[in-house]
Amino acid sequence: MDKKILTTPIQAEDLEDINVGDIIYLNGYITTCRDVAHRRLIEEKRDLPIDIRGGAILHAGPIIRTLDEDKYEMVSVGPTTSMRMEKFEEEFIKKTGVRLIVGKGGMGKGTMAGCQKYKALHVVFPAGCAVVAAKCVEYIESAKWKDLGMPETLWTCKVKEFGPLIVSIDTHGRNLFEENKIIYDKRKDEAYKEICKHVSFIK
């Protein structure tokens, strides 16, 4: 099977035949964007300092080395728990026109609705693989909202075959983590019953 690679700017049509569980890669630009940046856009109604229409964001706080004034190197970067951004994400997609949200773990109903209505994906980069991710970064294009400190700054990175990215929410209203959870819960109940047969130590 050929590698499925998306290139920014991403069009709505590019996402049509992508489904949950698919693996994709990204070429182009991705910007780190997490808690405070979401809050500034939604709650404080400030505009993002960069245009990410058709673009990609990464829920992450990287380790960056400053080489020179305005010259930076990506040392290590990995996704942080996406669920923290859930409360803002539907509105975020609507306002910014972002097409790809990269993070860790699943997201909820708001993001599902946003992805379906405005055509975007939530995808997971395997967490803990920070050096693989950093190696996909060709260079850092810009740093905005630096007042937020290293983890929260909006670092826009030029990336090549950034991935593997596992699709967790697609544009068709499916959510891989939510579907899996139903299976896990069922198996958990079976495991519980089985273990209980052997642990009645208090008699």
Binding site: G61, P62, S76, G78, A127, A130, V131, K135
Partner: peptide, 10 residues
């Protein structure tokens, strides 16, 4: 991580 001498997880 070992080849490049970097922390393996950020």
């Amino acid at each position: 991580a070992i080849d490049l001498d970097r922390p393996s997880c950020q």
